[in-house]
Simulated assay, not measured.
Amino acid sequence: MGQVSEQVNQKAFGWAARDPSAVFSPFTFSRGATGENDVTFKVLYCEICHSDLHMAKNDLGEFCTYPLVPGHEIVGIVTEIGSKVEKFKIGDKVGVGCLVGCCRSCENCVNNLENYCPKMIPTQGAKYYDGTTTQGGYSDIMVANKHFVVYIPDDLPLDASAPLLCVGISVYGPLRFYELDKLGKHVGVVRLGGLGHVAVKFAKAMGVKVTCINTSTNKKKEAIEHLGADSFLVSSDQDICKAAISTMDGIIDTVSAPHALEPLIGLLKTNGKVVLIGCLEKPLELPVFPLLMGRKIVGGYASGGMTETQEMLYFASQHNIAAYIDVITMEYLNTAMDRLAKGDIRY
């Protein structure tokens, strides 16, 4: 049964950026009260995502309100629930991903695509229904409407499941939607980083052939022996790339920097699909003729709706899928952000 709390704000402690320098410091702020449809949980882990750094620097051309507490892959243990919350109970492992609100009535929302709602409310740095600014998971507690809270299966490690709330759904979703999850399909994964290594895990669990596409061989052994990739293609090796032309049904492109699409399109079979999921600051050049000559598609995918996110977590649980992680304390946050900006991370 739910516990009915008094309608008073809850004191929260986090780390916030105060301006576009993206230097983080301790920050005390208020979370809303646990309303009748809300879930409050103690935050135990929150992934550091590159988009958090972009958000803190306000360099995506989006409105940013400071102080900003980032974090949109948040997991922890339920401490309080509203009187109308039946899906969760105190002590459950739960998470909140990229969104905490939407209109709940538009075509996208009705079709469980809340992430594409024109009035979608991101977990960090956005205006909530009550006019306050949403603050993310670099904090000690989280309060969210039950609709935007997902259950973390008991057999998933809580720390390594946090990235699945963004990274996981961002690769699981396009594999399903673009029908690259069928037996016999051949999928390429570009760049074996945070998104890429999880994409390989999900694709292999779906039973498809996977080729990792990287700029160097430094992760080849790991890709083959630990992640289970079937092959490894070095994009700078023209002979190897030439041999792989027209061999793939689809490619999950996780690159977040400017890069050429034409070589990737050339790797596709007729009707093949390149799916962009990297967060790009500048537009890419689109080579049209190769698309016309192969009836090929360049598509995109961003996060996922709540039903799909929960489905992804159950799939991850069934197939023992979790992200590779390094666990740090909040006091290490600024150093971690510097390393992230420099690319000084493994995954």
Rank of each mutant, 00 (worst) to 15 (best):
T65Y: 03
P26W: 02
V187N: 00
V4Y: 05
I345E: 12
E6G: 05
T215L: 01
Y138Q: 02
F289C: 09
M293G: 11
P20Q: 07
L340W: 02
D52P: 10
P287N: 01
Y151H: 15
A341L: 13
C166T: 01
K221C: 03
K89N: 13
Y314S: 13
A16C: 07
P258Y: 04
E311N: 15
H54G: 04
N271A: 12
V167F: 00
E308Y: 06
K93F: 05
A22T: 01
V190P: 02
L156F: 06
E73L: 09
F148R: 00
T132S: 15
T217W: 11
E222G: 03
A33S: 15
L267P: 00
E73I: 04
E36T: 14
Y151R: 14
I152D: 12
D155R: 14
T123V: 11
V110H: 13
Y151N: 14
K84F: 11
V143Q: 11
K93W: 05
A323K: 03
L261D: 06
G194D: 09
T270A: 13
D130Q: 12
P157Y: 01
D19E: 13
G173K: 06
N334P: 05
L195E: 10
V75K: 00
Q124R: 05
M330Y: 05
G304V: 00
V85P: 12
G101H: 04
F13R: 10
M120E: 14
G97T: 06
I90Y: 06
G35D: 11
I224F: 11
S161N: 10
G266H: 00
T309Q: 03
S317R: 08
E331W: 01
K269L: 01
L156V: 05
C102H: 09
K127P: 06
H147G: 13
N334H: 03
K273S: 03
V187Q: 00
L195N: 11
S83I: 13
F202Q: 01
I81R: 08
V94C: 02
D52L: 05
P122H: 05
T307F: 02
I297W: 08
G14I: 10
K282V: 12
L227E: 06
C241H: 00
L233K: 02
T123G: 08
S30F: 09
T307L: 12
L113W: 00
A126H: 15
C98M: 08
V171I: 12
A56M: 10
D38M: 07
L156G: 12
F232H: 11
E331H: 12
E6S: 13
E6W: 06
H147M: 10
V75I: 08
L264R: 00
G125A: 08
A323Q: 08
F232G: 09
Q10G: 04
Y128S: 14
D130C: 06
K220A: 13
L286V: 15
L158T: 04
L164Y: 09
G278N: 07
